[in-house]
């Protein structure tokens, strides 16, 4: 899993590239959570994510909860087809 980070107009965007699973999710968390804790708005760009499992869903749920507690927000952007499919399966939890 590779990522790229950018900041524009006080919005931090993390561009994820590759497959999101249990092995890599802690690394993504370690990038996103400090931004949220600093009350930054975070966009997660998922255009180049070819696979995501329940670990990714948990990451999204935890990030949104943490953002709410910090009066910030987390948004998903450019969702790829494989990610969209998993999000649809998990929609009752999101």
């Amino acid at each position: 899993m590779k990522y790229k980070l950018s900041e524009e107009n006080n919005i931090n965007t993390i561009y994820l590239n590759g497959e999101i699973d249990m092995e890599v999710v802690d690394g993504i968390r370690a990038v996103i959570f400090p931004l949220i804790d600093n009350k930054k708005e975070v966009h997660i760009n998922m255009k180049d994510v070819q696979y995501m499992d329940s670990s990714g869903i948990s990451l999204i749920i935890e990030s949104r909860k943490r953002a709410k507690e910090n009066n910030s927000k987390v948004e998903l952007k450019d969702i790829s087809k494989p990610v969209e499919k998993v999000l649809t399966m998990a929609k009752k939890f999101l």
């Binding site: 499992d53 329940s54 869903i57 935890e62 399966m89 998990a90 939890f93």
Partner: peptide, 8 residues
């Protein structure tokens, strides 16, 4: 959320 894998 922790049991999502089994749900899938």
């Amino acid at each position: 959320p922790g049991g999502l894998g089994t749900f899938f």
